[in-house]
Design a protein around this nucleic acid. Structure first.
Lengths: 235, 235
DNA sequence: TGAAAACTGTAATGTACGTTACATTATCCT
DNA sequence: AGGATAATGTAACGTACATTACAGTTTTCA
């Protein structure tokens, strides 16, 4: 039943009319799921929004979870498309990193992307496919591209990245800061473009200090801890 | 009705027996809510776990949301207690920051704290009280303490923080990296202590480069004038 | 000890929703 | 055009659950 069912589903939108319905339903599902969460979202509400009928919905997607996964699969790719191909060969590193940071913030501050993020983090434990799809569409390619980019700069001696992976993680973590958390939880409204830009600049500023060629390498530097009481555990 | 009801609720656990029930119910609620999410969690399941009866639950908490809020209020404080009073006056900055980072990672990797985090991020939009309580118990005091600490070090000239707020955000963001996201979504198991420690060291390493006194202060053109091509200011 | 109050267990109520069944209407192809 | 097929609208079914009602049981305390 399950296999046959899935075959039916894949073959179901052969006519152009049905393909349009399918897309309308996915759009409506995105709106309702992102706003209400999976459990709270009702299929009737989705159909009310999309037009068509419950019968058609079941014919196309088989179940609530089927519709959900179809929607997430499609939306993930669309929403995070700007992250998958950042313009890497560019001006000076600072300019390129600023561009990447802007792109990342653009996605992080997009209302629909925030809805997706909320679902991935909140319900990912219950739907393992959800974080799978999410990471494959967004963080994975972005990190890979940045690692390639910074690794090359490091080899050319333009910047200094002792551990490229950690450095990339630091960059992404710095972008995704308090500002984002308070926005995605609804504690504060989505900030204006200029505040976003200010944050981008701050992050790139700090990040440049991490990868600056002249920076003290990450050795333990006791030089600036003059007055310390006796040694303490460091294990 | 609402006011009278709340008064009743507050006055309801006067007997020691009832206070114990109340705690048992909060404990059970934490387990079930964190595992299932608010909508999915059923009050019967909670009562089955806590002992007592549905009647008592309603007498104590008034509603599902009442129980939820009571649970979150209590658990937030307990879970994030390690963050509110980090041992700031300490050895060298590096050692102190390492200690803070370990504390933060300890909370972030605690299964119950991850359940709480999932709810705050996933359902915070639907329950504004949730992020309110969360931020007040966790991030707010931690950030305040770190700002105080780093600000003082900066004035003493031990470290260099052009903008303490941003620097603190960077620190917290770096800690809360990919490792955390993949753990909290269930994509990977909670890492072993030594991997956590490795991450802590990496983060502190990179962070020390940000606040190192000798670092090139990345002053670039102030104001938000867009970057002109070819404007190299570093190398 | 015994009555009042507190507590518990079970069942009932109302509702919301996922899913399915079916009768009706629109669309397509020859 | 006209029959086969696709698509729709409506309603029914079963279930799960928050919430309430109530009758029975335990605890409290004078």
């Amino acid at each position: 039943m399950s296999i046959e069912n899935e075959a039916d589903i894949d073959a179901a939108d052969h006519t152009p009319r049905m393909a349009a319905r399918r897309q309308a339903m996915i759009d409506a599902a995105a709106a309702v799921f992102f706003e209400q969460g999976f459990e709270r979202a009702s299929l009737s509400a989705i159909v009310r929004r999309s037009g068509g009928s419950l019968s058609t919905l079941y014919q196309l997607f088989g179940s609530k979870e089927g519709l959900f996964e179809a929607m997430v699969t499609q939306r993930c790719a669309e929403i995070m498309e700007p992250l998958t191909a950042p313009h890497l060969p560019d001006q000076c590193p600072r300019e390129t990193l600023t561009r990447i940071a802007r792109g990342l913030m653009g996605v992080l501050m997009d209302p629909e992307a925030q809805g997706l993020w909320r679902m991935v983090m909140g319900e990912g434990i219950k739907f393992p496919r959800l974080p799978e799809i999410y990471f494959r569409c967004g963080p994975d390619p972005l990190q890979a591209a940045m690692i390639r980019y910074l690794g090359e700069l490091h080899e050319r001696g333009v910047v200094q990245c002792p551990d490229v992976g950690s450095v990339v993680n630091a960059f992404c973590g710095m972008i995704q800061s308090d500002l984002f958390y308070r926005t995605v939880t609804g504690m504060r409204p989505i900030p204006a473009a200029e505040e976003i830009e200010r944050h981008v600049q701050k992050v790139v500023d700090l990040f440049m200090r991490i990868i600056a060629v002249g920076a003290a390498s990450s050795e333990h530097v006791p030089g600036h801890a003059p007055h310390q009481k006796g040694g303490h555990q460091h294990q």
